Simulated assay, not measured.
Amino acid sequence: MNTEIRATLLQFPCEFPIKAFGHNRPNFDGLIVEIVRRHVPNLSEGAVTARPSHGGKYTAVTVTIRAESQAQLDAIYQDLTRCNEVLMAL
């Protein structure tokens, strides 16, 4: 999907949940928060939730941010997908 079309789907600023999945390892949620904070230094209290998979092998972390632009979201997703610990980012 090209950037012009995506830009029309969201109106900025907006609340936006970012989800990252990885193996259930110590401080996986901290790693995700560290990556997101590079782009959103003022995360609000309660912005982060983590949930293990049914079998406990994986962890899903959701960080809800106040997104200011499509470029900001793109940069966050690029950093998340570059991280070897992140199996998937949505």
Rank of each mutant, 00 (worst) to 15 (best):
Q78P: 02
F12A: 06
K57G: 14
Q11D: 04
V63R: 01
A7L: 05
K57E: 11
F16C: 03
V86H: 08
L10R: 15
L73S: 04
L90K: 12
P13T: 02
L90Q: 09
I76P: 04
G46F: 00
A20W: 10
S53F: 11
A20Y: 12
T59P: 04
P41I: 03
S69T: 12
E34L: 12
F21A: 05
A67F: 01
L9W: 01
D74S: 11
N2L: 06
T64E: 06
T81R: 14
L9C: 03
G56Y: 06
R82F: 02
A67D: 01
G22L: 14
E85D: 14
C14I: 03
V33Y: 01
F16W: 08
A60E: 11
F21D: 05
A60Y: 07
H23D: 09
I76H: 02
C83M: 08
L80K: 06
V40C: 10
A20I: 14
A7K: 08
H54C: 07
P41T: 02
I5N: 08
S44E: 06
H23M: 07
G30S: 05
L87S: 10
L43Y: 03
G56D: 05
L9D: 00
A75Y: 04
R51K: 05
S69P: 09
D79A: 12
M1H: 07
G22P: 11
M1N: 05
E34G: 13
I76N: 00
M88R: 12
N24A: 12
D79C: 11
E4Q: 13
V40T: 14
D74T: 13
F12I: 07
T49K: 08
M1E: 05
I76K: 01
Q70M: 13
G56V: 08
F21P: 02
T64R: 07
S69Q: 13
L9Y: 02
D79P: 15
G56R: 04
A20E: 13
I32Q: 12
P41N: 00
P26V: 11
E45Q: 09
F21K: 10
H39L: 02
F21H: 13
L10D: 15
F28K: 08
E68K: 13
Y58Q: 09
T62M: 08
N24I: 12
I18Y: 04
R37W: 01
E15Q: 14
H54K: 15
E4D: 11
Q72D: 09
A50Y: 00
S44I: 03
R66K: 13
T3W: 03
K57A: 09
A50G: 09
